[in-house]
Structures are given as C-alpha cells and as structure tokens.
Design a protein around this nucleic acid. Structure first.
Length: 199
DNA sequence: TGAACGATTTCCT
DNA sequence: GGAAATCGTTCAA
C-alpha cells in the first residue's frame, strides 16, 4: 500500500482537512496540469444525509462504496462535472469533494480549458471549475489515483492555517461545519447556502 | 413512464 | 441579488 493510500484510509473528518495543500495532477495528450487543493468538503458515508451515498448503493454511487483512493465523478445541474476522492474504510462510502484549488503547473492549458478572460485565481475556483481546469469528466469516474491512471495525488507543502464552516449548497445537515479551506486563500470559492436549507 | 430535484456557474439588472 | 441553462438520478404511480 502506498503512503498516500494509507493517509486516505483515516476518518473522513480528519482526512479532508489534511488534504489541503495536496496536489492533483492530470496528464493528457494536450499536456499536464497540476492543482494545489485550497478547499474541500467532507461527505461522511451512508449516514450523512447530504451525501449521494445516503440512499444506499446505486449505480451512480457504486464507486463511493468501493475502496478509497479512487475518484468519484458526478454530473450536476445538467452541465457540470464535480470530483470527489473516496476515503476511509472500504464499503463506508465516505468521500472528499474537491471544491477549489490553485493551478501550479500547466497554467496555459488550464486557461485554454476555461472561458476566455478567466482570471488566474478563478481557473479552479469552484468544484466544476476545478474539474474543467484539470480536464476531468465522466470517463474518469472510478479512476485510481495511485495506480497507472494519468491522475495522481501527492501530499504537498503544509498549509499555513485551516478554516472550517458549513458546506456549500447542501439542504440537509446544513449546519455541519464539514467544509475546510486554507485561511485567507484567494482561490477559495464564495460561500452559498442552499436556498432549500431550513432557516 | 413521468416529474421533481439538485454537492453549480454565469450573466443580467 | 436573481434567474436561466440543462439533464442524469431517483422515486412515485
């Protein structure tokens, strides 16, 4: 078992903040892009009402119920792809949503994948923006981040300080402070509470 | 077989 | 601050 895989096997509420500052790289024919994670959210398995896994094992959530270190990619609002890293114990269905990051390699390619005029800090600011900048989509669902896959995850430099707060856009368990970000980082996305969340 | 609903982003006023 | 764009997943009938 690799070092990274070992780190991912811990409890999701410990693994998620620990993943801040880690780097996710994607190699394609077009080139290479690396993003340093600045914002993540924890989804705590089948018992977490806000998680897609809360309805049990389905075709869509199959990957989450499998072993950790794999990528769970889902389609959102008819147009966006968002990526999670499966963590914890095999079968527990815990995952960490990659909400934002800073492009540290392959700036030009990342820019080419985003709308013209996108500022550098916004290239991977938001979960769907991050997958766009990295060139991640449906075909990467279930990809192994430690194996032969062109996607690789590596621990990065330690972060200065970590903040936490409620998750973005979730209507259930809306108070759980399971969103983690690097304090003061400009690439962290704006907080938006779900309009369906109870007052 | 049908309908409601998003772990969102972007553009408009 | 608000609404549109747009479709796979899930649940009800």
């Amino acid at each position: 078992m690799t070092h990274v895989e070992q780190l991912l096997r811990g409890p999701v509420l410990e693994v998620a903040p620990a993943m801040l500052g880690w780097e996710l790289s994607h190699d394609t024919r077009e080139g290479h892009v690396t993003v340093r994670l600045t914002e993540v959210e924890a989804y705590a398995g089948e018992a977490d009402p806000a998680s897609h896994a809360s309805r049990g094992r389905t075709l869509r959530t199959e990957v989450m119920f499998g072993p950790p270190r794999r990528l769970y990619v889902y389609f959102s609002y008819g147009m966006h792809w968002c990526a999670n890293i499966v963590v914890g114990v095999d079968g527990e269905a815990s995952a960490v949503l990659l909400r934002a990051g800073r492009v540290v390699e392959g700036m030009e390619l990342a820019r080419a994948r985003r709308p013209p005029g996108t500022s550098e800090r916004s290239l991977a600011r938001g979960p769907a923006c991050l997958t766009q900048a990295l060139g991640i989509g449906k075909s990467h669902n279930g990809a192994d981040l430690c194996g032969e896959s062109p996607l690789t995850l590596t621990p990065g430099e330690p972060v200065s300080a970590i903040s936490s707060g409620p998750r973005v856009g979730v209507s259930l368990a809306a108070e759980a402070p399971w969103r983690f970000w690097i304090t003061g980082d400009e690439t962290v996305s704006a907080y938006k509470r779900s309009p369906r969340a109870p007052a």
